[in-house]
Design a binder for these strands. Structure first.
Lengths: 231, 231
DNA sequence: TCAAAAGTGTTTACGTTACACCCATGC
DNA sequence: GCATGGGTGTAACGTAAACACTTTTGA
């Protein structure tokens, strides 16, 4: 069949803003760009879309290449298309953000990209419009996490409530009252208490919890207000 | 400078989901597709991105072409990239939704596209993946409108509270208690009462209000809860 | 026994909901 | 004078916020 006439095709890339949490700090996974231009500058992990791939699939592939992880929480963020955003050739980029358990990643480290985790407040200048993307991703996560229980994606299967609270505090960059936090979280019914404690960060130890995946799935679409309302 | 090697460029289009409100029904503006394939089938208004345009600019241009309107509320919805979504040639589509005052449009009607307004519940089958886009746009509007005062974009400069309420009822497809609605809306401080009444829909008449644009802008980012929480 | 983090309840304030009647007007 | 839609108030309820002390245990 005929093609559309007089149109100019462009490259389409996918860039991933990858968040991880180590139980203490919220971090971003960055790579050293391997090709010119801006070779060896810090960059988001990205790649061009394949011929038989859809956008989500490309994002999954890119994440797999960098981290070795399947089944990662991925969400489309925004498409960026300023004509000169890539100086070499016109490229539309569809940005995705990912939330991963940083410890899982560590086991399957793939180092060909010189990837490094940066604390959010210590993220270096990035190439092209990647800084904008990171800011947008952070805003979106704050938005989403205020309404849906997405932050569990950043935690290991077993986690403690103090860990969870610290994560929320990092995301919103503000302190949370622990009594109110515990009440809200337990009232949500999303957590299942485990018999064991994590003794690594206190003498007394904190009970582990697991996420009730049934309820998590069921409640995901219901708007929750798990924390602070973002201003 | 060299180009990226071994990559396959694709077409990038922008499709607009255009919502309008006539004071009674929430409607969608559709066109009869002018070119093959699927010629003469109902479709969203769209177009390919121009060489010196960014994505937002392309959406604005497309909207201007169809409606004659500048300065329309436009928001990027999602990028769609299934390989075969357009049977002719691989095309990534970035969908935008627009909220316009349907009466403004009527004055500047541009009929070369055989555009027609459809009540939301009477939208016909659309080409390609445009049905999905409409559903996604509707969900996003519900989401956004629950948190931000965006629905004013659908109303004329002067509007009555009953009109506004009917609009919310359309968007959420559920009845709203008028006493509570009035209280919330007036408490928001977003409305400025006008001395005149609209007598067109009742004997008593309903006061016109204007939007306080200063406050609207200021409050836009603060999360509001203007209506029903969507389930 | 002391330091350090985990866990537990209560009170108050505020926002949301539910609910019913009077008002203004044109016919 | 009556039908039609517009506008007003209050009480009950539930959720969120503020707030301080006891518990556990390893050093």
């Amino acid at each position: 069949m005929a093609k559309y006439l007089n149109q100019n095709p462009v490259l389409v890339a996918v860039d991933c803003i990858i968040f991880g949490y180590d139980g203490e700090n919220l971090k971003l996974l960055l790579i050293k760009r391997a090709i010119e231009p801006e070779k060896n500058k810090w960059s988001l992990m990205g790649g061009f879309i394949g011929e038989n791939e859809n956008l989500d699939g490309a994002a999954q592939r890119i994440l797999l290449e960098l981290t070795g992880l399947h089944d990662v929480y991925l969400e489309q963020l925004h498409a960026y298309g300023t004509p000169d955003r890539d100086p070499i050739e016109r490229t539309i980029s569809v940005a995705y953000f990912a939330l991963i358990d940083i410890n899982k990643y560590n086991k399957q480290l793939n180092d060909q990209y010189h990837a490094e985790w940066f604390k959010l407040k210590e993220v270096p200048k990035l190439i092209f419009d990647h800084d904008r993307m990171v800011v947008a991703a952070m805003n979106k996560i704050r938005y989403q996490a205020a309404l849906h229980p997405i932050l569990f994606e950043l935690l290991p299967k077993k986690f403690t409530i103090p860990q969870l609270q610290a994560l929320y505090e990092q995301v919103y960059d503000s302190p949370i009252d622990n009594r109110n936090f515990i009440r809200k979280i337990t009232a949500s019914g999303l957590l299942i208490k485990q018999p064991e404690k994590d003794k690594s960060s206190s003498r007394r130890g904190a009970f582990y919890f697991k996420l009730d995946k049934q309820k998590h799935k069921a409640q995901f679409q219901s708007f929750l207000s798990l924390t602070i309302k973002p201003k």
